Simulated assay, not measured.
Amino acid sequence: MDILIIEDDVSIRQELKQLLENALYDVSTLTEFTNYTECIKNIRPDLILLDVNLPNLSGFEVCQKIREQSNVPIIFVTSRTDSMDELNGMLKGGDDYITKPFVAPILLAHIAAVLKRTYKKEQQEKITYKGIELDMIRGRILYDGKCAELSKNELKIMHYLFTHAGEIVSRIELVENLWDQQIFIDDNALSVNMTRLRSKLETIGVQNFIETKRGMGYRI
């Protein structure tokens, strides 16, 4: 398991790195605090430890940007102890919230719990159809060694299509399924997401995977 540390305080970053390596995790760190999402896309960590007080953007903003592309688990590790900060972190897509100064065994226990919860679910949430794999936990689709990152909406749409493979799924059915999951999307937004999905599939070498049935809906 590879854990990415996003922490601008050098001493804390080194302390976390040493702690995690001693616990036999692979560890990556960011030392430049720009282009977060591009760095994460290249590193592809299994979990992120994220500070809140960062240069340029807050950790909450970074988390929100990550969630537009990936479902990688995120644990906030921060000196901010206000309950509203913790709530904000969860609302932005965080999976856990640990305050500094942290107690090493407790932090490791939280990391282990999030990883177990996430990747136990992953075993149930990796779906393959026609050689194309949908990875729900990491929020991506894979084919022939190539990978495309999906937004939350795109991921949920693809999951519904994969679980109804071979069936025609109506547009209203997709919209209602997303609303049931508290993802607010209308018919126009669905069209935009389908266009983006097809474009991303093409980047990994998949042509005509999502079939449009005129007046009826979609089928894979």
Rank of each mutant, 00 (worst) to 15 (best):
Q64W: 07
P101L: 00
N71S: 13
E122W: 13
V27C: 09
L115I: 15
I75E: 04
L107Q: 02
A109K: 15
E68F: 07
Q123I: 15
Q64K: 14
K41L: 07
Q64E: 09
P45Q: 03
P73R: 01
P73S: 07
F102P: 04
R80I: 10
F102W: 14
V77A: 04
I74R: 02
K121H: 14
V103S: 12
G93S: 08
N53W: 03
R80A: 02
P55I: 08
Q123F: 13
S58D: 02
P55M: 00
S83H: 11
A113H: 12
D82N: 13
L49I: 08
P55C: 07
T37H: 08
L50A: 01
T81E: 15
V103Q: 11
L47A: 00
S58F: 05
T29W: 05
E61C: 03
K41I: 11
E122L: 10
K120S: 15
L108Y: 10
T37P: 06
Q69G: 08
L47R: 04
P105N: 09
C39N: 12
S79R: 09
R67L: 05
R80H: 12
P101W: 05
V72F: 06
E68G: 06
F60D: 02
G93Y: 04
D85L: 05
T78C: 06
L50W: 04
M84A: 11
G94H: 03
S70V: 08
K41A: 12
N88W: 01
C63F: 03
P101V: 03
K92Y: 12
N71H: 11
L50V: 05
E61T: 15
I106N: 10
A113V: 12
C39M: 08
P55V: 09
L57I: 11
N88H: 09
N88C: 04
N53Q: 09
L30R: 07
I111G: 05
D96F: 09
V72G: 02
E86Y: 02
Q123M: 14
D82W: 04
V103D: 14
P101T: 07
P45G: 03
H110Q: 12
L107A: 05
T34G: 07
N56M: 08
L107H: 04
F102A: 06
C63D: 06
K41S: 12
P55R: 10
K120Q: 15
I98Y: 07
M84P: 04
S70T: 15
V52F: 03
K121W: 13
K116Q: 14
C39S: 14
L91F: 08
S70H: 06
G94M: 01
C39V: 06
V52E: 02
V27F: 09
D95I: 07
F33H: 07
A104R: 03
E38A: 12
E122H: 14
V103K: 12
Q64T: 14
C63I: 00
D46A: 09
R80L: 14
T29S: 13
S28K: 13
E38V: 11
N88M: 09
I111V: 14
N53S: 10
I40D: 01
